[in-house]
Design a binder for these strands. Structure first.
Length: 931
DNA sequence: GCAAGGTC
């Protein structure tokens, strides 16, 4: 069997289709992995890398005293499978193979992926022949040629990739651990460092510093307006920017008629058709349509997977000769592009445009099939159309402009006006994404004199450089060689998720700056694009067999050791600097009570804003729990309280902007404060002036302090504190009710728990007790479905009964026994006969009587008389002597209060029958027997 | 828990 291993499933499928020719390809699904078979060949796709390098076991603990971050430099590495199903399948197939062809992508990383597959094959089949097919595009011609002339795996090329893997891992992991430990940051807050991410972050930080340090310069621009044939137009002074104010004003004063045309220059300009899309130029073009880099790539990948466009991750800007451009044009005919395609076919340029970069991995991004807006949907269509139109543009002739330039003299001051007119639209007919802005000037002859309608002197300021947009950053990363076509947009995502940068355009956060500062000062190598360049040079040498992989890694290890010499000598200094710089990220503003810093604090699932002066100053602002998202500070500030706004961020959820935390704190506590009977608008204002915002603030304050703060008497303050305590109790009960509702009632569209809870409150149901007495109909009106309403009522009755029993003083051990026997309502204890209660729970009747007494007093009802254990035992014997009366009947009689001969004789048979369900006739029989 | 590189 001939096993062919491709880089990914879709390649495997298409390679199989091409090689099979007319033969049918058999698709088999093994677990979740597809294989494609024909003749005696089987093609299987990897998923890129299916193994990963990691340190050998023993380095998992970051805080190990023996395996410190530095020891990672010399730690051994292992390759471990990340895609177990694929690895297993490859090895299963490899055992049966007599030839294996590696058909991964034609680039360094592809060669390494191929070598990984080779090693998996070798591990189970040491002798099988393994060769390599190389192709730049999955087209019939290329694929057939590649398989007709297979070559050998290039182990040097793969070794270059391995060197990169090892170097990246050891630098990244060692520095990440070192920095995170020094700054005492763990979990979600680790400080990551890497060959690509750190220089990228450094660019953003540097740009921000440039902007901050920018000193604007004032300059002046001088222009005039003139007219010919009733067309007015502008001419600018040939000194584009006057930096000297006096010179500008003098020039303006001197500008006088006559305005004489001294030179007329007409020409033509070629406006070159754009070059084929590689990933970067595609992302930049998509950004102009409003797509973020990640979004553009996501959509392009979708279009690729569905066969509409070619592979979107490519560095190539030159169509390979094997690509059938005419065929693609034919494919696009008939749809909305029909006219454009026809035009391109008629006006085709001799050779398609070509960019500067030519590579072997994939062709430039181009359409591969026709599609319609209806099938794709708006977003995908926009991206697809962009790719189609770009493709058409690369086959279209250049555009041509006619240019005109007039030079004027106004009493010694020279002015110039430039015009441009599109004479041949060329590619612009099919690629309307960049506007062709024409400036049409009237025809004027040399020596002509024109009037001056207006002379305008504008004062302007030089502007700081712009922040990087995502697409601009990707462009610059490419220029510097940072990252690859597949990873550049992901690197930006990584910087955002590490909270190093935010916003669009991108701005660094305090943590981002602190990390770059620390690295710049002590490990500058990793923040410079130079490192990538050197690594690439070394990889080049490995590919050419001029250096070995191990030699390159060894040199890198030594450099990293030197870096660590410096880092370890300054560990605490580095850590302190980062911690100091980042303390500000948690600081929301200053404490309104004492003026010290207010900081966001986290403890487990709860978070709040606390004063740095704690415990002397206890001022704090509550925040929603971390389940709603982790609180971070934003750049917006509340004008009223001078505090930074808070945002709650949660993975996979839209961020929740809370706004000013104090405004939020105040408004969410007002309703609770009005639960206090003495609360008035005036009192509320006085409390707020003293920065007392919550009921628990009042309840927790010593009355003396409260009295002083409000300028009231101590008794009045005590009264307020008492009211606050009561309000707290109401709130506590409400939250208990809320919890139960949330637990039992399933949330539904349009009926949030908050809404249900509000309707319940409106119905006067504010705690479990009130709920336990409610009607099902009321609950249904509040939006609770009937089954849930019944369950809710049962649960509320049980819970509130339990509470009442506890409050009445029934000890916990006994309470448990009552509950287990299904007795949870206090009324049950008052009305059910003691013998029955004792029998059901196994509690001593005397003790039961004590409980019954407690509960009856609590409910304000009379306590039934005591019945002793002996009395019950005696009565039991008496009753069991009656023929036909057994243990079961006895228990039922207990329920009706009948526990001995006497009570049976006194009982009303009708009543006993209705309570116990024993036929009346039989009760008469029992009584008759006794008589 | 760490990188960067594939792919989804």
């Amino acid at each position: 069997m001939h096993l062919i291993i491709a880089e990914k499933n879709i390649s495997a499928k298409r390679i199989a289709q091409i090689l099979a020719g007319d033969e049918k390809v058999k698709t088999t699904k093994d677990g979740s992995v597809f294989t494609y078979s024909f003749d005696n060949r089987t093609v299987v796709g990897l998923k890129g890398h299916v193994v990963e390098v990691d340190f050998e076991p023993g380095y998992a603990n970051w805080r190990s005293t023996t395996h410190t971050p530095r020891t990672l430099i010399d730690a051994g590495t292992v390759k471990k499978p990340t895609e177990k199903k694929i690895v297993n399948l490859i090895q299963k197939l490899a055992k049966k193979a007599d030839l294996v062809t590696i058909a991964t992508d034609y680039d360094t990383e592809g060669e390494l992926i191929g070598k990984e597959a080779y090693e998996l094959v070798r591990a189970v089949n040491p002798d099988v022949r393994v060769n390599r097919a190389r192709f730049s595009a999955i087209t019939p011609a290329e694929i057939r040629a590649a398989f007709e002339n297979p070559v050998e795996l290039d182990f040097d090329l793969a070794a270059a990739g391995e060197a990169r893997q090892t170097v990246d891992l050891m630098w990244g992991a060692a520095l990440t651990r070192f920095l995170s430990l020094a700054a005492r940051r763990g979990g979600r807050d680790i400080l990551s460092v890497g060959r690509v991410q750190s220089p990228t972050l450094a660019m953003i930080v540097d740009r921000e510093r440039e902007i901050e340090n920018f000193v604007p310069q004032t300059y002046w621009v001088l222009s005039l307006t003139t007219e010919k044939d009733r067309t007015t137009f502008e001419a600018r002074h040939t000194t584009g920017r006057f930096t000297d104010r006096d010179a500008a004003f003098t020039a303006k004063e001197r500008t006088k008629e006559p305005l004489v045309v001294t030179e007329v220059k007409e020409g033509q300009k070629v406006d070159r058709a754009p070059t084929p899309f590689d990933t970067t130029t595609f992302i930049v073009a998509a950004a102009r349509l409003g797509f973020s880099a990640a979004n553009a790539m996501r959509i392009a990948e979708g279009l690729y997977m569905n066969g509409y466009i070619s592979y979107p991750r490519t560095d190539n800007t030159v169509y390979p000769g094997s690509l059938n451009l005419n065929g693609i044009l034919e494919t696009l005919k008939g749809g909305v592009f029909d006219k454009d395609v026809a035009w391109v076919q008629q006006n085709r340029r001799s050779k398609p445009t070509r960019g500067k970069k030519e590579s072997t991995d994939h062709p430039p991004i181009h359409p591969t099939a026709a599609a319609t807006r209806e099938v794709l949907g708006e977003e995908q269509w926009k991206v697809y159309e962009l790719v189609v139109r770009r493709f058409l543009a690369t086959l279209s002739p250049d555009a041509k402009w006619a240019t005109t330039r007039y030079t004027f003299d106004a009493s010694g001051e020279t002015y110039r006006a430039a015009g441009g007119r599109l004479i041949e639209a060329g590619w612009r007919r099919v690629y309307p994404y960049s506007e062709a802005k024409e400036t049409i000037l009237p025809a004027i002859g040399q020596g002509e004199k024109l009037p001056i309608r207006e002379v305008k002197l504008e004062e302007k300021e030089t502007q700081p450089p712009a922040r990087y947009s995502q697409s601009r950053l990707i462009q610059v990363m490419e220029e510097l060689g940072l990252g690859t076509k597949s990873t550049r947009h992901e690197v930006i995502g990584k910087l955002i998720s590490r909270r190093y940068v935010e916003g669009n355009p991108l701005r660094p956060t305090l943590v981002g700056r602190a990390v770059i500062d620390a690295l710049d000062n002590h490990a500058a190598t990793i923040t410079e694009p130079e490192m990538t360049r050197t690594l690439e040079e070394h990889m080049q040498l490995i590919k050419q067999s001029r250096r070995s992989r191990d030699d390159v890694i060894h040199e890198s290890r030594q450099m990293l050791h030197q870096v660590f010499d410096n880092l370890e000598a300054h560990e605490s200094e580095i850590g302190n600097e980062i911690m100091e710089q980042t303390a500000e990220e948690r600081t929301v503003g200053s404490c309104p009570v004492c003026g010290r810093d207010l900081r966001i604090r986290h403890s487990g699932a709860s978070q709040f804003i606390g004063c740095n002066g704690y415990p002397e100053c206890r001022f704090n602002i509550s925040l929603p729990g971390t389940a709603w998202g982790r609180a971070i500070r934003t750049d917006e500030t509340c004008e009223k309280h001078n505090l930074a706004h808070i945002r709650l961020i949660k993975k996979g959820a839209r961020p929740w902007d809370l706004g000013c935390p104090l405004c939020n704190h105040i408004s969410s506590n007002i309703e609770a404060l009005y639960l206090m009977p003495s609360m008035t608008d005036d009192l509320l204002q006085r409390l707020h002036e003293q920065h007392i915002y919550t009921v628990s603030d009042i309840a927790g304050m010593p009355p003396e302090e409260l009295a002083e703060a409000l300028g009231i008497g101590i008794e009045e303050a005590r009264g307020l504190a008492g009211e606050a305590e009561d309000a707290l109790e109401v709130l506590r009960r409400r939250s208990e009710l809320r919890k139960l509702v949330r637990k039992i009632v399933p949330p539904r569209k349009g009926r949030s728990h908050a809404k249900i809870f509000k309707s319940l409150l409106d119905e006067g149901i504010g705690d479990l007790h009130a709920l336990s007495q409610a009607e099902v109909a009321t609950l249904k009106k509040a939006g609770i479905p009937e089954t849930a309403a019944n369950e809710l009522l049962d649960e509320a009755r049980r819970l509130s009964g339990e509470r009442a029993l506890r409050e009445a003083g029934v000890p916990a051990v006994s309470l448990k026994k009552y509950l287990e026997a299904g007795i949870s309502r206090p009324e049950d204890l008052c009305y059910l006969p003691i013998p029955y209660l004792a029998g059901k729970t196994g509690i001593n009747p005397e003790t039961v009587h004590k409980h019954v007494d407690l509960v009856c007093r609590h409910l304000g009802r009379p306590t039934p008389p005591k019945i002793t254990r002996q009395a019950i035992e005696r009565g039991r014997k008496e009753l069991l002597e009656i023929p036909g009366l057994g243990e079961a009947t006895l228990q039922r009689l207990h329920l009706a209060g009948v526990y001995n001969a006497e009570t049976l004789l006194e009982a009303d048979p009708e009543m006993v029958s209705s309570i116990t369900g024993i036929p009346k006739a039989r009760i008469h029989d029992y009584i008759g027997h006794l008589k």
